[in-house]
Design a protein around this nucleic acid. Structure first.
Lengths: 178, 178
DNA sequence: GTCTATAATTTGATAGAC
DNA sequence: GTCTATCAAATTATAGAC
């Protein structure tokens, strides 16, 4: 693996644990096995590093999701949900854009459009998967429920929390609980 | 206002902007108009400070929500949603437990039960408001959708995002979008 | 590309005077 | 309770040798 990728891997993992201020260039340098000055060679500033992080995160989601037309209806919901279920159960990591979105007010301004682009892509992909007549607002609500569900599930240290929410989203239970 | 309260107010505001690592004792001292050593007098460690923050945050939610029996059905959903709508539109702040929940893996362990208690309380309160036959899992999904909706709304810098999600939750539109 | 060395600043926390 | 003073450590970032 090339060094730039190793740096991004380390940074992503740490950012998804503790957020923007929760990791340092030295943390990454130790993970990768170099000195912090070498990390600065590849990414001159922390802002540049997390921008690259956000871009890669979106590209990976695009690759993982594929063509929405190939996953119509409920299968599309499952596919988006799997991004969050894998983060939760396989990787034990928060969503990068979820944690950066929560911290947004204290982050370098250049990061905001990268995070927004991620949420927009998931929403648009899901709207397309659900087909003609689907409301983007509904797709956005599903993305929000998954993002919040990941936070609740991790806080309670219980994967069943997110799984149950995904199930409700799939089976079309009413959101209104009355 | 007594000093302890002023310190908690400053810390809460800053924590809800940038998370646990996004503020310092000196930041708070400057907000309050004292020296950082005085902040340490009231809260010896940062961990003690954020624990107090979490406890106060829950107590305030309890006061704001009142008795669930007084707000049956959809009115209960509106009352919980108002906590998030106020954070978003009036205060322009993230939910304290949402941002700490996202950063949880990198926070002092003693904070986790405080955050979990908040989500549990909202879920139990809403389950009670929805009355006999209501599924706690549905109430939890509503809390998750609100927490995630707050993140998406702030990221897009558009209050309508959260408002629309709240509307879907109230009108009982299906979560399944197929 | 990676290193050593270092600058300039900030961090959480403490000792002790008042 | 608040202050001055300080500590030890960590932070982002840069200069320059190799």
């Amino acid at each position: 693996m090339d060094r730039r990728t190793a740096i991004l891997d380390s940074a992503e993992r740490r950012a998804r644990k503790g957020g923007y201020y929760g990791f340092s260039f030295r943390d990454i340098a130790e993970d990768v096995g170099v000195k912090s000055a070498s990390v600065h060679y590849h990414f001159p500033t922390k802002e540049a590093l997390v921008e690259a992080l956000g871009e890669r995160y979106l590209e990976r989601a695009k690759e993982a999701l594929g063509n929405p037309a190939d996953h119509p209806g409920v299968e599309g919901v499952q596919r988006v949900a799997d991004l969050f279920l894998t983060a939760n159960e396989t990787d034990d990591l928060m969503c990068l854009c979820g944690i950066f979105g929560a911290e947004l007010a204290a982050l370098p301004a250049a990061i905001q459009p990268k995070i927004a682009a991620y949420f927009d892509y998931l929403t648009e992909w899901l709207t397309a998967a659900l087909g003609v007549g689907a409301e983007p607002a509904h797709a956005q609500a599903v993305v929000a429920a998954l993002e919040g569900g990941l936070i609740l599930s991790r806080t309670k240290d219980d994967p069943a929390v997110l799984r149950t929410i995904v199930q409700l989203l799939q089976t079309g239970q009413k959101v209104r609980l009355s």
